[in-house]
């Protein structure tokens, strides 16, 4: 059941502000989409490790680093607000955050 509480919780987790109309719409949409995708519950739930084609993780070592500040100017130019080569955001901790 997708109720108001679920929608509010999802919007909160996803950090998205939604209008009342959007909430009502998504409540309806999620119900019907989840009803459809829930059919995977009928399928076999075999452990992929037991298949003949298991997935393996591939790792690589870090290399080819570039000199610091090579791209700083171009990248900072895309930030909404900057100051002295820093990106500006609002203060996170109130009153110095000593508590």
């Amino acid at each position: 059941m997708i109720d108001d509480k679920v929608i509010d919780n999802l919007a909160n987790l996803a950090r998205i502000s939604l209008s009342a109309e959007e909430k009502a719409q998504y409540q309806k949409d999620l119900e019907s989409i989840l009803a459809y995708v829930s059919k995977i519950g009928e399928a076999s739930d075999q452990d992929p490790a037991k298949l003949s084609y298991p997935l393996t993780n591939v790792w690589r070592t870090d290399e080819d680093s570039f000199d610091p500040e090579t791209y700083s100017e171009a990248i900072l130019a895309e930030a909404p607000e900057t100051k002295d080569n820093y990106i500006v955001v609002k203060k996170i901790l109130e009153n110095g955050g000593d508590n």
């Binding site: 679920v6 929608i7 999802l10 919007a11 987790l13 996803a14 950090r15 998205i16 502000s17 939604l18 959007e22 719409q25 998504y26 949409d29 999620l30 989409i33 989840l34």
Partner: peptide, 20 residues
């Protein structure tokens, strides 16, 4: 506010579903 205003309907719908 940024994500509410910047993303369109389908993108928000999929983010909500994926979060679920």
């Amino acid at each position: 506010l940024t994500r509410g205003a910047g993303f369109g309907k389908e993108v928000k719908r999929r983010i909500m579903l994926g979060t679920y």
